[in-house]
Design a protein around this nucleic acid. Structure first.
Lengths: 226, 226, 226, 226
DNA sequence: AGTTAATCGAGACGGTACGTCTGGTCTTTAT
DNA sequence: ATAAAGACCAGACGTACCGTCTCGATTAACT
């Protein structure tokens, strides 16, 4: 189970594990934790645009004081980011038989994420705050993006090992080819139309390339006349 | 020449061309137009985060009354969007000798756009407002995105015609493979590291595919193993 | 007929009389003059509070450009003041048979002025601008108040001469006793209740005093008991 | 001690007395209350014209957010009215030996109020807003004017009882004779010249009347000679 | 007949205040 | 020590108005 609150303030140290330091005073209400996150998700689900998602409205909707929000999160961006994390499906296992199937599964997963209204909404929020709060982006990258990227890179490396993928390609560039289209779709609100076979299409296209299969040897496809 | 102001209000009809309807009253100041847009670009260039880019500050910086802003644009998003349009370089010609060169040129162009601080900043703003104001996004898509997309599709179609690109691929998916990675980079602030040959890399990878070249010599890349 | 416009600007000199200097260019429209003043009076009559009587609204109502207003008057206060002057009834003649009758007539006149919605509205406006624009008040005093005050003082002096009024009273104080109550009523919106015989009541009270008539017959009122 | 703030919003009910309802949340800052009122008085004292007495300036001067103003008062008029109330001297006791002395004391008090720059400035403001906000005027009348009026009427009734004042006069008219002149002076900025004995003069004139003491019996007052 | 000059309605201009809302903090009482 | 409530300061929001400044068009009187 993922820890929801960023644990701002006194409880911050508790995350580094170790023995419980036995805090004093009234413990934080777990009910408040979930009420807040659920309020955020409910509001987003109801189509409230991000710009109208004020902390005051969230607090009101959750039946919670504003201070309770700021005690847990450093600001709106952090809260939204955290709210999104709470609905994160875990990365699919990827123990597929072929590298191609693994890639399809992964891209499919990114695709479905992008289709979810909530995910793309929060993703846009993160994007719009990247500049002003780089540490926010760093944290998001660390906790959400890296795992996926590593999984993707792992699949690609396996492909290289099995000979399915040629070794002279930069794997980061390659990864960007799989992730980029899905990300762009999610951000730019193009998730309304949902082409079903998109993931397979993307993977196969990248794998096979777009040059026509050489019918007869000698006619090198894609080799321009010059 | 691209028209800068959104022409809110009375002047709105003038855009549809036709004969000059001979408007009454003092005409809008072109000096104000440019002063405003330049103020926006200057502020962005100076690293002012989008959140601090208030209409009041823009007006102050431009030496202009707030009403002058709202007379031209319906709100901050529209203004920023329009400011971005003003720094749009025209699409490169694309009359290259080979389709590959055309694609490289186009992707390179998108890449450079993403590298520009101003472009990516405004792009993020647009993205974060897409949800709340779909008509804003529609307009941006119509006037900026579509032209590029058409150019890209044109190049791809030419490739199909010349046999450089196989005909059984969905061209929209193909286009997303070129555009997506650049867009994602621009949005996610990864434009700090700037790999020089990225555009060529992306194009070649997509064209040639990632499967290893067949063992037999003479068979060009892109020919699938099986 | 009273001259309406304050004749701001070029025509200003024309007021000092002398021969007409024969101005060039298009002459000012008399229609605009009256349209403006009538618009003001109509708005006041319709119950528009002074605070909402903006120059823009007046111009709109009169079907006139704002510049046409400012060409004639220096500002809102001057326009309103002038609008009021236009509905000024002339001071009554005061050639009454008795001084008491003259006073009653004059006080009655002030009373009726106060009862008029328009008069009291503009009076309140003048009052609220007295501090900020003393020259406005000076002008109002000169052209409106002084004549009345002189008429009143004249009546009082005549009373002293005829023996109706004792000579050891300060006439300014005396005048204030007649004018003050009416003015206060007008300003403080107490003109809604309209006691008919108020003017006579005030005059008689001031004339006769409030000490009880002496017990002995023959001794007129005003002779103190002790 | 008079309560300063109008108690807009939640606290409004608290005024009707009863037991303290034990409000929740942070209580309103008494420091802010006084800082605001003192800022208003300071600005007026410094000669800032009412028109430049913006809420924003008051907030700035008081070191207070604008919301703090609007939380307490419904608008500028209400704030100014309340500020004036705070500098209200209590009505003088009026337990004088003679009714004449009481009246002099009261009129003197009104006179001094009118001489105060602050009082008359705010009075003018109230007057100019009477039309647009009658409830404002009603409240002012209720809390400030009525007490004075009652005191005055009381003195007059006592005069009637002691025989110092004749019984056949309307006491309201009589009161207007005392109050009107002072009010008019205060409103019309005539408080710059300050005749010292004015109050005594007014009272004596009203009491004794202005007819000459009857020298010989038979000369009926009010009947002119001719 | 042409020129000149000031007017007209319309509306944009730079400023500034309005009253509301939000962000993030602080201060109450109650738990 | 937290909780909910709500006040606190700061400042942006979009609108309205002020008094000035162009526009093109109109309207005289002077050439």
């Amino acid at each position: 189970m993922s820890r929801v609150a960023e644990d701002r303030g006194r409880t911050a140290g508790a995350r580094t594990g170790g023995v419980a330091p036995r805090r004093r005073g009234r413990p934080r209400s777990a009910a408040a934790d979930s009420a807040i996150v659920e309020a955020v998700l409910r509001l987003i689900e109801d189509g409230v645009p991000i710009a109208e998602l004020s902390m005051e409205r969230i607090a009101r909707e959750a039946g919670v004081g504003k201070a309770t929000l700021y005690r847990r999160w450093s600001g709106k961006s952090a809260l939204l980011l955290d709210a999104m994390r709470s609905l994160d499906a875990p990365c699919p296992p990827l123990e597929g038989v072929s590298v191609r199937d693994d890639l399809v599964r992964l891209v499919e997963f990114l695709h479905r994420r992008g289709l979810a209204k909530r995910s793309s909404a929060v993703l846009r929020t993160v994007v719009s705050h990247v500049e002003a709060q780089p540490e926010l982006w760093a944290e998001y990258h660390e906790t959400v993006v890296r795992a996926r990227h590593e999984a993707l890179l792992g699949a690609l490396r396996r492909g290289v090992a099995t000979g399915e993928i040629r070794a002279d390609r930069d794997l980061d560039t390659l990864a960007a080819l799989f992730v980029g289209p899905m990300l762009a779709r999610a951000l730019l609100h193009e998730w309304r139309q949902l082409p079903e076979g998109l993931a397979e299409d993307v993977v196969d296209t990248v794998l096979e390339g777009v040059r026509p299969p050489a019918a007869e040897p000698g006619t090198g496809p894609g080799t321009p006349a010059h």
